[in-house]
Simulated assay, not measured.
Amino acid sequence: MASRAAGSSAPTIVDVAAQAGVSIKTVSRVLNQEPGVQEKTREQVLKVVAELKYRPKLSARSLAGARSFLIGLLYYDPSAAFVAGVQQGATLRCREAGYHLVVESLHNDAPDIDSQVERVVSALRPDGMVLTPPLCDNPKVLKALRESGTPCVLMSPGRQAKGQASVRMDDVHAAEEVTNLLISLGHERIGFIRGASDQAASGLRYQGFANAMKAHGLGLDPELIQQGDFTFQSGVDGAHQLLSRRVRPTAVFASNDDMALGVLAAAQRLGLAVPSDLSIAGFDDSPAASLVWPPLTTVRQPVDQMARMAVEMLIAANRSDAQPLAESDLHRVLPYELLVRNSTCAPAAKPVTKRK
């Protein structure tokens, strides 16, 4: 088959179809990753696409299939590491499927947040939206998307809603596993720093901590529970409160790594050795968790894989042959991993008593 002449205008889908010896509809199916195309034909079309360096125009694709080939990502989260992981996973999956990701930041407490969502949807006409915490639990956001007819997938929602697609990990069991680790090392006086009150993960992780403590017959001392907001500074502040007690905790479990790093900084400023004087555990496995000394014991939350899965669910729902998913398939739970590092060890024989 003859290739296009040098210097000619940009190749079109007609050129691809002609050179591959297939119909335009077949080329469209291959580009949209739809079934019903023989593997040999699919390979031939992709080969021609690469040879001609064909790039479909989003506007043309949208007109042809009533789709925009845009996926929206709405976020409001103080943790830069979490947002970066979500964007990376979602962007890569969009790129693989020929979609584009559009990222919008919305303030969860904005009084007109529903109007903001409506404007975004009206301007972009996305094929779907990925919602991260706490927006995924905001009734105004969910109502605006529902009324606009925009499909959405919720990442780490507080609860599972019937008929609403979601992707999450088991925060409760993961927090139980961290707490069980600290108890197995011999810790009984364990401090806990909660996350932001407007995020469901905060309550779920505290629930896991409380479950493990109760299962081992250990009390929940209110003086050893501090409220944070998932930021480094709230970890520092919470640690100073915990470590100012007459009988200090021998371990501190912070609800995310940013706060755990704050605990580590506070302990070092107070002259405490980690982990011999104080064990510290976090949650998320942010990039910094393995770079500090000692590296943090933490839970690896599969943020990028969760984002990829959310995008894949939206893409699949927009395919021409898409079938409604069973309720059990609407809710995906991805595995986490407990990473035991040098920030935790067995406690000293007796709890450390602060000098007056």
Rank of each mutant, 00 (worst) to 15 (best):
Y99C: 04
G98Y: 07
V45Y: 05
V48Q: 04
T41Y: 05
E96I: 03
V49D: 02
Y75H: 13
K47R: 14
E51D: 15
A80M: 12
A50W: 06
K47Y: 15
E51N: 13
G85F: 06
K53V: 10
A50S: 14
A81Y: 08
Q44D: 12
L58H: 10
P56N: 07
A84Y: 05
L52P: 01
A80C: 06
A50G: 10
E51Q: 14
R67N: 12
L52R: 01
Y99Q: 05
P56T: 07
A84G: 10
A66G: 11
A84W: 05
R95V: 10
Y75K: 00
P35G: 09
L74C: 06
L52S: 04
K53L: 08
T41R: 02
A50Y: 04
T91S: 12
G98C: 05
Y76H: 13
Q33P: 00
C94T: 01
K40L: 11
R67V: 13
L92N: 09
E34D: 07
N32F: 08
G89H: 03
S59M: 10
A64S: 11
A80V: 14
Y99N: 02
F82H: 05
Y54V: 04
K57S: 15
A64K: 06
G98F: 07
Q38V: 11
L52M: 10
L58I: 12
P35C: 05
R95D: 14
V30I: 07
S59V: 12
D77R: 00
Q44P: 06
P56Q: 07
L52I: 10
K47H: 15
V45P: 08
Q87I: 15
T91W: 10
T41A: 08
A81W: 06
A60S: 12
K53Y: 09
I71W: 04
A66C: 08
S62Y: 08
V86Q: 02
A84Q: 11
A66L: 13
L58W: 11
L92A: 14
V49L: 05
F82P: 00
E34Y: 02
L74Y: 07
F82S: 01
C94S: 03
N32G: 05
L63G: 03
K40R: 14
S79M: 11
S68T: 09
Y54E: 04
K47C: 11
A80D: 14
V49K: 00
V45E: 05
L52N: 02
V37R: 00
G85P: 08
V30Q: 01
T91H: 07
G89P: 07
L58T: 11
L73W: 05
L70Q: 08
A90V: 09
